[in-house]
Design a protein around this nucleic acid. Structure first.
Lengths: 231, 231
DNA sequence: CAATGTTGACATGAACGGTTGTCAAAATGT
DNA sequence: ACATTTTGACAACCGTTCATGTCAACATTG
């Protein structure tokens, strides 16, 4: 019973290794999922439609993903990665003052969402209603952003807790104002100029800083610029 | 062809008129929908489950609603009405200064959501993913709240537009911070004391006011209290 | 009690999505 | 050229949900 030709479990096809081909298929499916989910919403898209968009058949769907929710999770993490990369790139510029860095981070966030509106739907809307597990992960991801902001606030104004102000709640509120402004901006087709939204987002960060100083009783923290006059 | 006994299309049952019985059934279904949708989410609840919860059969469901989305819309408007009533009642107290009224409104908002956590899910999460029509109506409802805040800001600081600040965007950001703080609060089981959340919500309103004054260049608006020190 | 409106339990059928399986054709290495 | 893997198109199965329909039992009025 010796097999003269042992089966070659993995042949090169189209000049690509099996793993590489599977990786490509997986990416195609994620791209198709981003498109479909981001366009019509998770609950309005079926596996068949995703496969058609990816130019693949159902078999390859279940080769890479256990089910539709599993694909969404991958799409979601892809989207998170896109945002994170953009923000990190903005923050990786030569060190500057806090206000400038915050502005750059917010601008990168808004630019990324405007340049790919599908991300907004994935990250801000669908992530909450796909399943309990996904919404939990979404909460954690957003919370990690908010935690960074909270730590920053606390490092700038360490005495805040002594004055009854919870830096983490302030951070959550700031994230909320930013997210909501973005949602509104996106919902109206990104008609308003990006810089207008950026300025109004950072307005809240400035305002929170000033309010923190008021609560603490000190006059000014390091690096706070004078009121922005434009003209 | 005279009918000796013309059919009586509407007999009293249980001492109730047909319309009254139907009205009760409709209310039962809305209550059941609030319970089911608010507990497990719109997309995880079917018509059968709602009917079982309402102690009614499918026939009576389609007697009052065209489909599941139609019921959700009714539940949504019911929830909005509950919130609106609570806020209006809080604002209907003897006239006071702006800060006190804002605090009372926010407190009423938070109390209502805490006392009925199902409202949070209906209003803040599911409303965005049921259908395009529902999310449109949800946007309009939230916007009407934000518009009130925006008008208030503009009346307090009429010169804001001259300084490059859009009162409507500020209002949206404030609504966003409040909504997000509530969402976070609700998601963690309302563990934090209500007053803590209230105070941090109004913190943003205070902060926005101070920031508006900074941008305008004036020193203080009417009625702004000194920084809140707590003992 | 009889007549009839009313109700509840359940059946039914269409439609849909998820998931697995079949099969022939295309592509590839030897 | 051949054997074999890979691929695509599609069928099929299963379960679910929506939406409507059927029918007997019940309640109420006269």
């Amino acid at each position: 019973m010796t097999r003269s030709k042992p089966p070659a479990p993995g042949r090169r096809f189209r000049g690509l290794d099996p793993q590489e081909r599977q990786r490509q298929r997986r990416e195609q499916l994620i791209a198709a999922g981003l498109n479909a989910f981001g366009g019509k919403g998770y609950h309005a898209v079926g596996v068949r439609e995703i496969c058609a968009e990816a130019r693949l058949t159902e078999r390859y769907f279940y080769e890479s993903f256990a089910n539709r929710e599993d694909l969404f999770l991958a799409v979601y993490h892809h989207a998170i990665g896109t945002i994170r990369a953009a923000v990190m790139r903005a923050l990786g510029q030569p060190p500057r003052d806090v206000q400038t860095m915050a502005r750059a981070a917010v601008r990168a966030f808004l630019e990324t969402l405007r340049d790919d509106p599908r991300l907004s739907r994935i990250l801000l809307i669908d992530a909450l209603t796909v399943s309990a597990e996904v919404s939990r992960q979404s909460q954690l991801a957003t919370q990690s952003f908010a935690d960074i902001v909270g730590s920053l606030i606390l490092s700038l104004y360490p005495q805040l807790p002594k004055h009854g102000v919870d830096a983490q709640l302030v951070a959550n509120g700031l994230v909320g104002s930013t997210v909501y402004l973005v949602m509104h901006w996106a919902f109206n087709g990104f008609k308003a100029p990006l810089e207008t939204i950026v300025e109004h987002c950072v307005l809240f960060y400035d305002a929170a800083g000033t309010e923190a100083e008021r609560r603490i009783g000190q006059v000014a923290a390091a690096g706070k610029p004078p009121p922005a006059r434009r003209g």
